[in-house]
Design a protein around this nucleic acid. Structure first.
Lengths: 154, 154
DNA sequence: TAAAATTGACAGAGTATCTGACTATATGCA
DNA sequence: TGCATATAGTCAGATACTCTGTCAATTTTA
């Protein structure tokens, strides 16, 4: 390392990078663990389904809108999960065009596996840095997202 | 809010979700803006190249390792960027097997476009919430990533 | 009830990733 | 020195996830 005073300070890591790095780590680890736990075919893309599927069933169109992808893409993800037995499709009694997506027992199990990992990680984090630290990080991330929603309007 | 004590508190948003949401917003917006700025073919995947390419040139193998993808995948990304004129390949004078990837003028321009957006966003954030707030968020995210690196060991 | 909108599917395509096998070159050791 | 092994990058093929365009069935609206 040079000992003379630097003219240009090292550029700060970008905010996006600071978010991406821990996000990727968590995602990779959790889905590897889920695979080891008996669900090797569930990928992060599928959580676009699980995240939003309602206990009383959800329409593909609604799931697509919530996940921010096309109906066709959501249809594909739902189809894969249905073949694997993670969700079930039933006709919507209220609308002859629509189908309702329900999580099966196996689907719920997989979701719980991920939730459990998330809770465990957070506990470890609270133990290491304290509740205030974690609560503040959470609060700041929520605030950041709200700020972006307002600021990055189209 | 109900005043009676809740038996089941609303489950907290997962940490991964708190990271993912702002990350996705930033990423989508920045690359849309980059497209409007004359670089419609640059996608987030390509930043795996730009992020790590050294001023003196980088090997595909090294770029792959740094990005955490296979040599073949990195080769593909580099090939796309080379065809579009964002990077240039030259033989490595020190190793007859290797090629060195360099960013072209156009590549540097694209990278700067993204950096500029990142700086602008951060400035807005500092104006809205103050330097301390942003610095603390940054520090916590760095700490989180370091914690994950240690904790999520294989 | 006729027109317009919505739901989901089908067909076709593109991007980004992977694994396996290969060539050419470099490195290390006997 | 020369052979064995490791490394750099490519080729071929496959898979996952996403898109656009189109369509039939159905529901909603005017």
């Amino acid at each position: 390392m040079p000992t003379h005073k630097k003219k240009y300070p090292a550029p700060a890591i970008r905010l996006g990078t600071l978010l991406r790095r821990p996000y990727r780590r968590i995602r990779e680890r959790f889905y590897e663990e889920l695979a080891r736990g008996g669900h090797p075919h569930i990928t992060p893309a599928h959580s676009a389904v699980f995240r939003n599927v309602a206990p009383g069933g959800s329409r593909i169109s609604d799931l697509a809108a919530e996940a921010g992808i096309t109906k066709q893409s959501m249809g594909y993800l739902v189809d894969v999960l249905a073949r694997r037995g993670y969700v079930e499709l039933r006709p919507d009694p209220a609308d002859g065009r629509a189908k309702l997506v329900f999580a099966t027992k196996q689907g719920v199990t997989a979701v719980r596996h991920l939730s459990r990992q998330s809770r465990a990680l957070e506990q470890r984090l609270r133990k290491a840095y304290g509740d205030a630290w974690v609560n503040d990080l959470r609060a700041k991330l929520e605030r950041l997202d709200a700020f972006l929603e307002d600021t990055l309007r189209h």
